[in-house]
């Protein structure tokens, strides 16, 4: 009888080893992801991916460089600075929540062990507001884009460095959930994020060059001519999901937060250069 148990235990152990051996680690994912682009665009410097589609589209790049001479997101940065410095009704300011100052985008998104969730910059800003008796800002449109533009501009040059703490398995699970989201087909049109921005990056969809996912997170928020304003990464997620005819998820809800966690991790090592300007 004991023997049977031992064999069973051994079998179970072999199975679990087999399962873990199959799944790749975040480090392996990162390497495979970045290698894919190196192979596809051998002439593009890895650091240039922070420029999105313009890293691989020379014609678009010329127009974009002309736009960047008079950055359309500048007024948003200025308004954001005012927001940062204006005290809440209780006399405190954002600085009381973030004592290291506005140059802090490189710290987001991060795993918060206490809360047991991924915390994004926008979420942290709203938590700060609520802790000080202020109404949270709407996540997609409006003033949130001003303060995020200011913080992004102050954080330029910081390196993307998302950590997945090894001492909390829930952090790895959040990363895995984000990864699963990225590779899952969705909506009536049946596209995963990866179909456009990995598998077909650099190809032309009608007249648009599909941007590489590597570097996607570095330049947000972006002023998009199509929007006529600055918008956050989660607004863009929403738009992408709608385009594939899937019902979008809540901005800064669990799905998109984990997606941001995975996607930002994939750009680890790239400098932050937001806000950006896009078509």
């Amino acid at each position: 009888m004991k023997k049977v148990f031992r064999t069973l235990a051994l079998l179970a152990l072999t199975c679990s080893i087999g399962a873990t051996a199959q799944a790749s680690t975040p480090e392996e994912d990162l390497k495979a992801f970045q290698d894919f682009y190196k192979k596809r665009f051998p002439n593009v410097e890895t650091s240039d991916y922070v420029n999105g589609a313009y890293s691989i589209d020379p014609v678009g790049r010329e127009n974009w460089e002309a736009i960047e001479e008079f950055p359309p997101y500048e007024p948003f940065i200025d308004d954001g600075m005012t927001m940062w410095e204006t005290p809440f009704a209780n006399g405190k300011t954002y600085k009381d929540c973030f004592p290291d100052g506005p140059a802090m985008k490189g710290k987001f998104p991060h795993w918060d062990k206490e809360k047991g969730m991924v915390v994004t910059l926008e979420l942290a800003l709203n938590q700060c507001r609520e802790a000080n008796g202020e109404k949270p800002l709407k996540y997609k449109k409006g003033p949130i884009n001003n303060i995020v533009s200011y913080i992004a501009s102050e954080s330029r040059g910081q390196l993307t460095n998302v950590e997945i703490p090894k001492d909390d398995p829930r952090a790895l699970q959040a990363y895995e959930d984000g990864k699963k989201f990225y590779y899952t087909r969705r909506g009536q049109l049946n596209f995963a994020c990866a179909h456009c921005h990995l598998q077909n990056a650099g190809m032309i969809l009608r007249t648009e060059v599909l941007s590489p996912a590597l570097g996607h997170t570095t330049h947000f928020p972006v002023y998009r001519s199509k929007w006529g304003t600055v918008g956050t990464l989660h607004r863009r997620f929403t738009g992408c999901n709608k385009q594939v005819r899937a019902k979008p998820f809540k901005a800064h809800g669990e799905e998109y937060r984990n997606l941001e966690y995975f996607l930002t991790y994939m750009s680890n090592g790239l400098p932050l250069n937001g806000p950006g300007a896009r078509k």
Binding site: K31, A32, D35, F36, Y183, T184, R186, L198, Q199
Partner: peptide
């Protein structure tokens, strides 16, 4: 029909399969 198809779509991808063009 859309509801059924959406459910099927999600369930058929319950287990993540990494694309073959990514090389580990």
């Amino acid at each position: 029909k859309q509801g059924h198809l959406g459910y099927e779509q999600a369930m058929s991808q319950k287990d993540l399969k990494m694309p073959s063009y990514l090389h580990y």
